[in-house]
Design a protein around this nucleic acid. Sequence first.
DNA 1: CCAGGCGTTTAAGAAACGCTTAAGAAAGTG
DNA 2: CACTTTCTTAAGCGTTTCTTAAACGCCTGG
Lengths: 225, 225
Amino acid sequence: MTTADRPSLLLVEDDAVLGPLIAELLDPDYRVQLVTNGRDGLHHGLTGAWDVMVIDRGLPVMDGIALIAALRSKGIATPILILTALGDADEKIRGLDAGANDYVTKPFDAGELAARLRALTRTFPSPAPAPVAIGDWELDPTQRSVRSVYGHTVSLTAKEGQLLAALAAEPGRVFTRDELLAAYFHASDQPGVIDTYVHHLRRKISKAVIRTVHGLGYQIGDAHE
Amino acid sequence: MTTADRPSLLLVEDDAVLGPLIAELLDPDYRVQLVTNGRDGLHHGLTGAWDVMVIDRGLPVMDGIALIAALRSKGIATPILILTALGDADEKIRGLDAGANDYVTKPFDAGELAARLRALTRTFPSPAPAPVAIGDWELDPTQRSVRSVYGHTVSLTAKEGQLLAALAAEPGRVFTRDELLAAYFHASDQPGVIDTYVHHLRRKISKAVIRTVHGLGYQIGDAHE
DNA sequence: CCAGGCGTTTAAGAAACGCTTAAGAAAGTG
DNA sequence: CACTTTCTTAAGCGTTTCTTAAACGCCTGG
């Protein structure tokens, strides 16, 4: 997962034409995930770490208002913008009071939508991703450092952090050098780079954290204990 | 300051009829202070502790957009709603990008305005103007000076104070240059400005206060144990 | 047990990044 | 309006990080 990318946006829109259109419209500025009904919206909204959500008022399976109320009741504080054809004042009041932060009616101006999204993301800084546990250590991706269970903190470089995060993402799985290379380094790099960074990590953290699988690659934790 | 009463609302509206009308409309839910020009708006906005502001787009003495930009550049983060007759998309974009959080066009529905204000005040649970401790230093709430534990006082410029306050607001968190830039400087500024102010702060206060995280940004406190 | 492959460790050049300085532009002040 | 302070840009230089490469040691199959 790349960290310093565009903000992530969850778009819940059932219209088969409008959905992809809006997604494309927002694509230059956001990493857009499009889902087409309320149930999927709820699932993604609860499980993903979104910077902002755009939700259609009228949705199949689960209504937009109900979706927002459900998300808010679960403690999701992500800014939400309602996008809908229903423009009368009572509808707006109901949507905003359900927990939405803004309300835009179709037809909408693309620039205005973008500006309103900017205003929302500006005031709600993205929540920090959760730290990853690795044996006796804890990796904080936002800070690029690992802290041992007894308070000692070691700071990592960008590549060291990416490599460690990649391995820790699926404990027990063996990653080949080529997999790691393709995901986090330049395509032109030699597979030997990985060895070098594994060495750096072992020196900084502890030798036992990363295990070598001879002839295959590297692995973290969870072998057969 | 703020009692456990209704939230405080600063209304900047020059129309002699509409101003008192809106004030009366909002009176059941807010403690409304009405001023009728941009200069007074700026003065009240800077000196008072407001929960939310409603600002007219077209104002005598100082334009609404200019007023908002001025408030934001001084570090005022209070939610702002623009209320205006100018409804075309470009105007909205300009207003929102100047730092407003919402934009309502006249004629407006009273219930919708109230709902949008609720959405704004709900999401911003009122600022906490507490003095901030930074290592051996204490940052004055006015953000214009720091005092060391042994009485020595150093005065800061506005930007220096804002930068330090931003970093100190979340000790341990790493802020990227872009985050700091977006929050407290003009959008057109180069990220390098941050480096310059970090240098100024380190010279005025002490080198150890602000930590560099290579490739990411800057951080205060909470890293070396 | 030996040989060849594979992994580990070091070192060093290249590239990216941050620090510092200086100077012009803008804003504030009397 | 002139003066001072503050803000912003840009460029040179030093440091950290990235990548390559080569020497050395360990593992595994025959």
